[in-house]
Amino acid sequence: MKTVTVSGKTIEEAKANALLELSIEEDQLEYELVQVPVKGFLGLFKGKPAIIEAKVKQDPTKEAAAFLTQVLKEMGTKAEIEITEKKKEVLFDIQGEDLGVLIGKRGKTLDSLEYLVNLAANRYSDKYSHITLDAENYRERRREALQQLAARLADKARKTKRKVVLEPMSSRERKIIHAALQNEKDIETASEGKEPHRYVAIFLSKK
């Protein structure tokens, strides 16, 4: 990342010079003081200028949005991102036509994009912010589908009195299954296997 070293008679002047050099606004400036200015005295002592090391402050959300916009364009899709920020969560909703290609089979492409967007967003940032990607309300539709699947497989476990095993899923999807069956007193769930092939097992609780 670009860092510039600038000086001025005072810290304020050095900061102003840094803004000019980086052509940014004051709220984007991040700097470290390298040398505290010392005033000269009647020409007897030479003063020292203020020196700062300045760089552009990174905004993870903005970086991520710019990255995703570029990726979507180069994937050949016509889509825009709507950003919603709430507390520590940021939602990027991809809007456009024919977004099936961005979602992929069981959301594989959307999950991959989400993973890459988060890597890009947090590359320079020390505070980790999580970005969720969605398109065509996929996340909500998938949640409902998984909840129905969970209920159906719990019934199967009851009928057969045997453990029912689901296909491998991401931790986010496994969590939805666990939560869906949390209040079923006679049913227990557990995640088994190793990533990336970890899956949920549904079985009857032993009494």
Binding site: M75, G104, K108, T109, S112, L116
Partner: peptide, 8 residues
């Protein structure tokens, strides 16, 4: 992840 995006 890169592959799955590129292949899509």
């Amino acid at each position: 992840a890169i592959r799955s995006v590129v292949y899509a």
